[in-house]
Design a protein around this nucleic acid. Structure first.
Length: 191
DNA sequence: GATGCGATTCAC
DNA sequence: TGAATCGCATCA
């Protein structure tokens, strides 16, 4: 079975984020089509952790492309990123929403709800549904055991619009969603 | 050891 | 639309 390796993440973060739409993210028996991502760039992006956190800059320096960057937000939500290290710049791809494919029962259990549309429609909900926590931080996961990413099976139409929930860098259209998907955290702004 | 804040979520 | 929520990074 073909799957995406670390080489996929040795390019620029924006291309990675866009091209991950439609891929299938697998994590310990759960899987979902990636329908929403965001790109963050190490340089020149005020919204990126590297802009204001020395520890994030250290993380980039000390880890390889394809490593998981997981952190706790609002004191309660784990957010899952993949480290990108390209020749022209590094950064992260934030996984924001999935269309559940398998392991849906486990997802519902962890989320405490039965509706499939809202199971992974947000970065915090996604990690809770998949059972991803801080123990994944700094770990490689591509092709490791039951974890990995499968490439797109069919062509998908991708929409770009501004990233969500940030106070700086809003001018960059670095949020990517599958056109018309009902599984995204919010419908993209029509521009 | 103290402080401030946030790449969210859910209920109203 | 608004408030909860609290661990972590950062700085003193």
């Amino acid at each position: 079975m073909k799957s995406i390796g670390p080489g996929f993440f040795r390019r620029d973060p924006v291309s990675c984020a866009r091209e991950l739409i439609g891929c299938v993210f697998e994590w310990d028996g759960c899987a979902g089509r990636i329908v929403e991502t965001e790109a963050y760039a190490e340089r020149g992006d005020e919204a990126c952790h590297t802009f204001f956190r020395p520890s994030a800059r250290r993380f980039v320096a000390e880890h390889g492309a394809g490593t998981a960057y997981v952190y706790l937000n609002y004191g309660m939500h784990w957010l899952f990123n993949v480290l990108v290290k390209g020749p022209h710049g590094c950064g992260f791809v934030l996984f924001r929403a999935l269309e559940p494919v398998s392991g849906v029962e486990g997802m519902s259990e962890r989320r405490g709800t039965g509706k499939s549309e809202g199971l992974c429609s947000g970065p915090g909900k996604l990690t809770q549904a998949m059972g991803i926590g801080g123990d994944a931080h700094g770990r490689r996961f591509l092709g490791e055991g039951t974890r990995g990413i499968r490439p797109v099976a069919e062509r998908v139409e991708v929409v770009a619009d501004p990233r969500i929930g940030i106070s700086k860098g809003q001018e960059l259209p670095w949020r990517f969603t599958e056109a018309g998907s009902r599984f995204v955290s919010r419908k993209p702004v029509v521009s």
